[in-house]
């Protein structure tokens, strides 16, 4: 997290920090809980998180509850948003610009399979960016592992994702019956789906923690994020396949871990291929690295949250 370190370097607290840092660190004596300052990788962090799983679930449930409170359609919005976006892009790409899908799958399915995971990704990150700042009163008044905030923001989007995913069954059945050029053959590769979701979750959690923390220190992050996430969508094969000729945007596309992830959904659900390509493996490794680093920095900075929020 370059921003945090950066700030620490130039902040006036530096001299103060140095004087106290040289003091011997007393070991924290805690019998059963609050092993707060332990570094990631030690089991204490995980056991602490496991201990707070009720809280994670409660906050997830609260986010969901609040999102659909006083709305007539309620959780149906989890389906309606990707579905209506799909229809918009279907209109654009079938009546305006023509795209060549190569695989012959109906465009609606192609777009829905891109937009549902993408909505999950972008909505999760959007929730993460605001998670610490929006819960200011909890951050400053109650102690629990701060990871719970971004993770529960992801949790509520995961539930939306699952709801939206069930509609896919209906869409597939509809096109299987109505589209003469295309029929669905169930493949065992669907079983790889949890792996694809897991990689996406890893990436989302890693980025989410970094974004939540960065936005706590600098509120600009939220604005920058809004721009970047839009651009990112069009650099990913969400609503159109990326051109085979990748000379112009080559390295961006190659480094973008979301492309093999979204391709992974289409491959294992519709095309009957395993999602594992070299680029998918790269995305998986990158996700784990991002989560590891992001979580580590998050832990390191967590004690400052209550003061800086």
């Amino acid at each position: 997290m370059r921003l945090g370190d950066f700030r620490q370097k130039i902040g006036p607290q530096t001299s103060e920090n140095r004087s106290t840092e040289t003091l011997p660190r007393h070991p924290r004596r805690r019998e059963e809980d609050h092993a707060r300052m332990t570094a990631i990788g030690q089991p204490a962090v995980l056991t602490e998180l496991v201990r707070y799983r009720h809280l994670w679930w409660s906050l997830t449930w609260r986010d969901l509850r609040v999102r659909y409170k006083q709305s007539v359609l309620g959780i149906a919005w989890a389906v309606l948003i990707p579905l209506s976006t799909t229809l918009v892009f279907t209109f654009v790409f079938t009546h305006g610009v023509k795209v060549n899908l190569q695989t012959g799958m109906p465009y609606v399915l192609f777009a829905y399979l891109g937009l549902v995971p993408w909505t999950f990704f972008s909505a999760s990150l959007n929730g993460c960016v605001n998670s610490l700042v929006a819960n200011r009163s909890l951050v400053t008044k109650v102690y629990f592992p701060r990871e719970v905030f971004p993770l529960s923001a992801i949790g509520s989007c995961l539930i939306d994702f699952c709801v939206a995913g069930t509609v896919l069954v209906g869409l597939v059945a509809y096109f299987h019956v109505s589209d003469p050029d295309w029929s669905y053959v169930p493949h065992a590769t669907v079983l790889w789906l949890p792996t694809v979701i897991l990689v996406q979750l890893t990436l989302t959690a890693g980025l989410g923690m970094v974004l939540a923390m960065a936005n706590l220190f600098f509120r600009d992050i939220r604005q920058i994020f809004a721009v970047v996430i839009n651009l990112w969508m069009f650099l990913t094969c969400v609503v159109y396949p990326l051109p085979a000729d990748r000379s112009t945007t080559g390295w961006i596309v190659a480094a973008n871990p979301m492309t093999p992830i979204i391709e992974g959904y289409r491959r294992c659900i519709i095309e009957g291929e395993s999602p594992f390509t070299i680029r998918f493996a790269f995305a998986a490794v990158l996700s784990v690295v991002i989560l590891g680093l992001g979580w580590r920095v998050f832990r390191r900075q967590a004690h400052k949250f209550a003061e800086c929020v």
């Binding site: 003091l23 924290r28 059963e32 809980d33 707060r36 400053t140 008044k141 109650v142 209550a306």
Partner: peptide, 27 residues
């Protein structure tokens, strides 16, 4: 004591399950 802040120097030790009513309407 609640662990919300971290001391700049010195040591805070707590033995046991702790509940803090610092602002009860916070949650």
């Amino acid at each position: 004591l609640a662990g919300i802040l971290k001391p700049d120097a010195g040591c805070v030790a707590v033995n046991g399950r702790l509940a803090a009513l610092i602002e009860i309407s916070a949650g």
